[in-house]
C-alpha cells in the first residue's frame, strides 16, 4: 500500500497521539490537511468538511465531548523535540520564522513565546500541515498558459502550492524548470522529495530573491517557479527573470479577486508584465481555478 503523506508526519508526533491514528479510517486519513496540537486542549484535524476533534477511540466529531483526545504539555513538548529531531539548535533559523520543515513538503507551524533572540520557546501550539502531490490539479492552468508568467492566487490553505507543484511537473516535460524552494514545501526537501518532473532542478534557499539570481546565472532556466512572492526584493528578482526571458510561475495570498489590484506586491507584479495568466483558487475542494489574464481585471 502506498504510504500517505500523513504517515510521513506521524513519526514526529508523540506516540500516544500517533497511536490513535491507527484506528482512524483510511479514507479520513487521506483527507487530513492539518493536525493541530494545543497545550492541554483537544487534538484537532482540519478536513475538507471543516475542523474535527479526534477522540481516544479513533473517531472524529465536529464538537469536543467526553473521550476527546487531549494533548498534554508533556506530549506537546515531546512532539516539538521530535519535530526538531531533538536538535533545536539546528532548526533555529526556521524557528525564528515560526515553522519547522518536515519530510514530503509538510510543515509544522509553531506558536509560543517569542524570546528576544527571535526563537519560539514555551511551545503552546503546533500545526502540522500535510502536503500532498495531486497530479492533474493544474491541467487547466497549464492548458491556458501561453509561454508567459503564471500567478497562482488564493486564500491560505486553498492549495496554491499543490497547484504550483503540479504546474512545475507538467511544464518540465518541455522546459528546463528551476524551483526556488525556501521551506522545502514545493519539492518536499532532500530526504523524501516529491515528484516535480524530469527536467526540474531544485534550489533550496531561504532568500528567494538571491535564489532567483543564482538560478539565472548558473542553471539557465526557461522557467523559474517560486512560492509566495511577498517582498519587494522578491518582486525585483521576478522582474529581472522576466527581462532575462524566463517564464515565472509564482503564488500569492489573496482573499478575493479584487485584492489582486489592491495589494501592492500583486499590483506591481501584474503591472510588470511578468504575468500573463492568473489562476485564482477558491479554496473549495474540487472547484477548478478561475483562469484569466491581467488585462481582464
Amino acid at each position: 500500500m502506498k504510504e500517505d503523506a500523513l504517515d510521513a508526519v506521524l513519526p514526529f508526533v508523540h506516540q500516544s497521539i500517533g497511536r490513535v491514528f491507527l484506528f482512524l479510517p483510511e479514507e479520513t486519513k487521506r483527507e487530513v490537511c492539518e493536525l493541530r496540537l494545543r497545550r492541554n486542549l483537544p487534538v484537532c484535524l482540519t478536513l475538507p468538511q471543516g475542523i474535527r476533534y479526534l477522540f481516544k477511540d479513533g473517531t472524529i466529531d465536529d464538537r469536543p465531548r467526553e473521550g476527546v483526545l487531549i494533548c498534554t504539555a508533556e506530549q506537546l513538548e515531546e512532539t516539538f523535540f521530535l519535530l526538531c529531531k531533538r536538535s533545536v539548535y539546528a532548526h533555529a533559523e526556521e524557528l525564528r520564522e515560526g515553522y519547522l520543515s518536515l519530510p514530503n513538503g509538510c510543515r509544522a507551524g509553531v506558536c509560543g513565546r517569542v524570546a528576544p533572540d527571535g526563537m519560539v520557546r514555551d511551545i503552546t501550539s503546533l500545526n502540522l500541515r500535510i502536503a500532498r502531490a495531486v497530479e492533474g490539479c493544474a491541467d487547466s492552468v497549464v492548458s491556458a498558459e501561453d509561454g508567459g508568467g503564471i500567478l497562482i492566487a488564493g486564500p491560505p490553505s486553498s492549495g496554491k502550492t499543490t497547484v504550483l507543484r503540479d504546474t512545475v511537473r507538467q511544464l518540465s516535460k518541455n522546459k528546463r524548470v528551476v524551483v526556488i524552494d525556501s521551506r522545502g514545501e514545493i519539492s518536499g526537501g532532500t530526504e523524501r522529495p516529491l515528484s516535480l518532473g524530469v527536467n526540474t532542478d531544485v534550489l533550496l534557499i531561504r532568500n528567494k530573491a538571491k535564489g532567483t539570481e543564482m538560478a539565472l546565472r548558473t542553471m539557465f532556466p526557461q522557467t523559474i517557479a517560486l512560492d509566495e512572492t511577498g517582498t519587494a526584493e522578491e518582486l525585483k528578482g521576478v522582474e529581472e527573470s522576466f527581462h532575462a526571458g524566463v517564464q515565472i510561475v509564482t503564488t500569492a495570498h489573496i482573499g478575493e479577486k479584487r485584492e489582486l489590484l489592491e495589494r501592492k506586491i500583486t499590483r506591481h507584479l501584474l503591472a510588470s508584465g511578468a504575468i500573463s495568466t492568473v489562476a485564482l483558487l477558491s479554496g473549495k475542494i474540487g472547484e477548478p481555478p478561475e483562469i484569466f489574464s491581467p488585462e481582464e481585471l
Binding site: F81, C84, K85, R86, S87, V88, Y89, A90, A92, D117, M119
Partner: peptide
C-alpha cells in the same frame, strides 16, 4: 540535554 536548546545554550 543535547539538542534541547539553541546554539548559545548548547
Amino acid at each position: 540535554k543535547l539538542g534541547t536548546g539553541n546554539l548559545e545554550t548548547e
